[in-house]
Design a protein around this nucleic acid. Structure first.
Length: 586
DNA sequence: GCCGTTTTCGGCCCGACTGTTTTCAGTCG
């Protein structure tokens, strides 16, 4: 069991304890802290356990260490299993409804006696929830809304969950000598921010017999992460994996591989205009091949790769991320597709926290982690004072932090630079949490909304636009505040926000955290078209948090961004010059 | 369950907001 899985178990214990009546709120907080503490540890967990290195880590006491050791040794935590067995599943389901916490869940469970979300929905519609003590009409409506949101997103998974599950199977399959080519397809390959199921295509030699296919399918359906088999044949098998995500594996002859891969990569929306184009060229395309139509005859157009398929249709190769019917068909036909930004183009980090606010690592540790990863700079952005829950800095603290940064920069001189920044709260009225004369002392400012989510769309838009107009604001952080699969962003007119940002020369970030990916890629494209520079910010709260940049790269590529559309592809001097010009915009 | 320049018991992050109340509990970040 790896570190992430153990972190999830510890977090799970926290949730389960919250739902257990009579349990201590401090005990569950201890598990949440423990999960966070473990998550921020670097290195192989098995090694750490073996060397007894967990002891002394703040947040990890004797009991939690024992549970971590148990997980490493047995792949289970008995305490967790026991809690799961004693917790009604509907309580866990209810926990995912925004606005419902442990207390209200227990009240509903005790007094309305629901056993499923469907029953809860029914109870709300019959007004049986609003009458409970401490509840009311608005709470009941909010619960109904939450249930509707969940049923819309229930069967989707965050990209990293799907990616990790797919990678495990992919690695295992790659060891089979019968397999010639293997590739993840579907929305995962297109790097959608959430994924419903995993599609994988593998090929066997053109002359391979059925036993080769049977062997692959047997191997696939008996992988340790397979929880259930929902279908098993020689060309297609379907399973449910440990996280609950469904996965399909297709096995084809190698000559058919590019066509099948292309078909199952999608998207459906991309294929519709593509088929139209094929038709206009007297061809037809499906998952078996690309065919030239000669009267009654269909003649296969031989293709070794997907690039060959596009070439046969008179097009440039279309990267999977772009296959969303966002104009890529026309652009590929005119050979005007952008050269998309890649992870290696990123030169530094522009949204990160340290122990000065709610980060887990010191500035030095964060800086050294950036150096290790080959970056040239770290734009440090601890929270401002209004973000009290996150240990936001006062003006005094911010200035003291600046002194620490100066000392470190002297030490790193010539090879690395820490930029002085802040993630400054945008207050309710659109003013910033620090006065201008303080902001003027920083290299750059990320401005974000962390409160008053409920303002009307008009008020929220005005608030954001007012912040954008402040000449010290360099970047708007996580502009819509959405949490994928969990809550919608705050209501605002993003078109107007993008318009204002373009007018004032302010950047809008892609917050690369896989639960955010905010700005959404559809809007990234709009921002780019208005000439807005888009930083890809990890919003890192730990060393490992820096690495989520690659998810942001996915969103950037889906939004058609080239390297020079991304702010943090600039080298240090060019970046500082950019901020300088931005600040003197008048 | 964790932690200690109040150290083995008694605290534990906290302010804002919402919807429910009529002074506050629950939730969130």
């Amino acid at each position: 069991m790896d570190k992430n899985q153990i972190v999830q178990l510890l977090e799970g214990i926290g949730e389960l304890l919250a739902l257990k009546e009579g349990s201590s709120v401090f005990e569950l907080r201890a598990y949440e802290n423990g999960a966070r503490a473990l998550n921020s540890l670097d290195g192989d967990i098995k090694q750490l356990v073996k060397e007894g290195k967990l002891k002394g880590t703040p947040g990890l006491g004797p009991t939690i260490i024992k549970r971590i050791e148990e997980a490493v040794e047995t792949d289970h935590i008995a305490f967790y299993d026991e809690l799961v067995a004693n917790t009604p599943a509907v309580k866990l389901d209810m926990l995912r409804i925004p606005g419902l916490g442990p207390k209200r869940i227990n009240t509903i469970y005790e007094q309305v006696k629901v056993t499923s979300l469907a029953e809860l929905e029914q109870a709300c519609k019959e007004n049986r929830v609003a009458v409970l003590p401490g509840f009311g009409k608005k709470t009941q409506d909010k619960i109904l809304q939450g249930i509707a949101f969940l049923s819309e997103h229930a069967d989707r998974f965050l990209y990293p969950v799907a990616e990790e599950e797919a990678a495990r199977i992919h690695e295992a399959l790659a060891t089979l000598p019968e397999i010639v080519r293997h590739q993840v397809a579907g929305s995962l390959r297109r790097r959608r921010e959430t994924v419903k199921d995993i599609d994988m295509v593998v090929s066997v030699a053109d002359d391979a017999g059925p036993e080769a296919r049977r062997k692959i399918m047997e191997f696939f359906t008996t992988q340790p992460t397979v929880k259930a088999i929902t279908g098993k044949g020689e060309t297609k098998s379907s399973v449910i994996l440990g996280s609950g995500i469904a996965m399909d594996l297709r096995v084809v002859a190698d000559r058919q591989f590019p066509y099948t891969l292309h078909h199952f990569t999608g998207s459906r929306e991309h294929h519709i205009p593509l088929r139209r184009r094929a038709q206009s060229m007297n061809m037809t395309i499906n998952d078996y091949g690309l065919f030239k139509i000669n009267g009654e005859q269909e003649e296969l157009v031989p293709c070794q790769t997907e690039a060959d398929i596009y070439a046969a249709l008179g097009m440039e190769y279309v990267e999977p991320e772009l296959r969303e019917d966002m104009g890529e068909i026309e652009a590929a036909a005119q050979h005007t597709l952008p050269t998309l930004v890649e992870e290696k183009d990123i030169r530094g980090v522009l949204h990160a926290h340290s122990t000065w606010s709610d980060g887990h690592n010191s500035i030095r540790e964060m800086a050294e982690a950036c150096i290790e990863r080959g970056y040239s700079y770290l734009g440090l952005t601890d929270h401002s004072k209004a973000a009290a829950y996150a240990g936001g800095l006062s003006e005094d603290d911010l200035m003291k932090q600046g002194e620490e940064i100066d000392r470190l920069n002297e030490e790193f001189a010539g090879r690395f630079r820490i930029l002085k920044g802040t993630e400054c709260d945008i207050l309710r009225d659109g003013t910033l949490d620090f006065p201008d004369h303080i902001l003027a002392k920083l290299d750059f400012v990320v401005a974000s909304i962390h409160s008053n989510f409920q303002l009307s769309p008009q008020e929220q838009t005005e608030r954001m636009v007012r912040a954008i107009a402040n000449p010290y604001v360099s970047i708007i952080g996580h502009p819509t505040g959405r949490i994928l699969l969990s809550r919608e962003g705050y209501q605002l007119d993003m078109e107007a926000v993008i318009e204002a940002a373009a007018r004032h020369g302010v950047c809008i970030e892609i917050n690369a955290h896989p639960s955010r990916l905010d700005l959404d890629w559809h809007l990234v494209r709009k921002a780019r078209d208005k000439g807005i520079k888009v930083p890809i910010g990890p919003d890192a709260h730990s060393l490992a948090g820096i690495d989520v940049i690659r998810y942001g790269i996915g969103a950037a590529r889906k939004g058609w961004l080239r390297a020079n559309d991304v702010l943090n592809t600039l080298e240090t001097e060019a970046l500082l010059a950019f901020f300088h010009v931005q600040r003197n915009r008048g």
